[in-house]
Amino acid sequence: MLHDTCNGQAYFLTPPGTARNWQQDGTQALGPGSWVVLAPPGWRGLLRWLHDPTGGPPHTRTDDLARSLATAVGTGEDTEGCHTAEIRYAGPSPLGESGYRTGLEWNTDGLARARAAEIITEHRAGQTEVVRGAHLLFDWAAHAVRSPDLLRVVQETIGGSVAVENTFLMIKWPGRDFPVPWHQDGTNPRMQLDPELSVAAWLALTDATSINGCLQVIPGSHAAGYLDYGREESDARRGKALGIQGMPDGPHSQGVWLPLDAGQACLMDVRLLHRSDSNMTVGARVGLNIRYVAPGAIRLSGPHSPSLYPLTGSDW
């Protein structure tokens, strides 16, 4: 079962012959192997595969499904402002059933806080919120992505050859409106990351709590694969973030907060749904987001050339 949020429809695939007595209103047969079911009015939830894609009866092939969905909506093009995943990559995670691992250490508490204090001093006047490519701009970030304890776990997850695809330094200033919508780190208009060959890391330079904007994740949400997304409606100077289509803003009933102490880190499957709130405390919250990749992880969308920052291995 998948949800096409661009067109407000849910797709329920069944093997040939099993839908012979299907009597649900608002359904349309696409062919001998699948049916389309319209989503109930007002439905805004998250649908997943009814069965584990790695077990049980075989599912419809990805390319067959794509053609069927195009037939269902009458066009092969995306709705304006909405991006449809080229490959869903539904299935299990190298990080286990939850899709994340937390409580890792990338630095000592004291050194992380000291670095955060310097960052806050440097960026306070301009109220900088996002710095892209931090590992290419700051020596401390170039060292952070190579943290031995963190890098060891990354290699255990995606293999011995590791590079950085991108980093984001994020500063949530106290009382400033800066919520981040539900999103997935491994997909954007220029690329998709293979979840078997990539992983996202979030490093805390200050304490991260549910009050100052720590991550909230939906455990297991990676199993649904990449979901359709679009740009948020915002005029913030930091730009418009990508958000999952059809997911309401704010905490989710199945969401889990991931508080971290300064110097700690978490790893996430690049398909894992996560978000964060604005900072409602009196001090700044500082974090560094990293996307690690192994050779062959990047599927490009268009004439883009990835600028990788190799850390280990010789396959680059």
Rank of each mutant, 00 (worst) to 15 (best):
Ala241Pro: 00
Tyr100His: 15
Arg132Phe: 15
Tyr11Met: 07
Ser210Asp: 05
Ser234Arg: 08
Trp202Arg: 01
Trp35Asp: 00
Ala116Phe: 06
Asn107Asp: 09
Gly243Gln: 06
Val217Leu: 07
Asn188Arg: 13
Arg146Asn: 07
Thr312Arg: 07
Pro306Thr: 05
Gln192Tyr: 08
Ala125Ile: 09
Ala117Leu: 12
His252Gly: 02
Val37Gly: 05
Leu242Pro: 02
Asp315Tyr: 04
Gln184His: 09
Gly96Gln: 02
Glu118His: 04
Gly33Phe: 04
Ala72Tyr: 09
Gly186Gln: 04
Arg299Glu: 12
Glu232Trp: 03
Leu104Arg: 03
Pro16Asp: 05
Ala116Gln: 13
Trp106Val: 01
Thr54Ile: 01
Asn7Leu: 09
Ser34Asn: 09
Thr206Ser: 10
Gly246His: 11
Ser276Cys: 04
Leu136Ala: 14
Ser221Glu: 02
His304Met: 07
Glu233His: 11
Leu30Tyr: 06
Gly26Thr: 01
Thr84Val: 14
Leu197Ile: 00
Arg231Leu: 15
Pro189Trp: 13
Ala236Val: 10
Thr60Ile: 15
Gly159Trp: 05
Asn279Asp: 04
Leu46His: 04
Asn289Cys: 06
Ala204Ile: 00
Glu156Gln: 13
Asp185Met: 05
Ala10Trp: 09
Met1Cys: 09
Gly313Thr: 10
Pro259Asn: 12
Pro251Ser: 10
Gly255His: 01
Gln24Leu: 10
Gly42Lys: 11
Ala117His: 07
Pro195Arg: 04
Pro174Gly: 10
Val164Arg: 12
Ser98Glu: 14
Trp257Arg: 06
Pro16Gln: 01
Ala19Arg: 05
Ser253Glu: 07
Asp315Gln: 14
Ser307Arg: 15
Leu260Ile: 08
Ala224Leu: 08
Arg132Ala: 12
Leu151Gly: 06
Leu136Thr: 13
Thr62Gln: 15
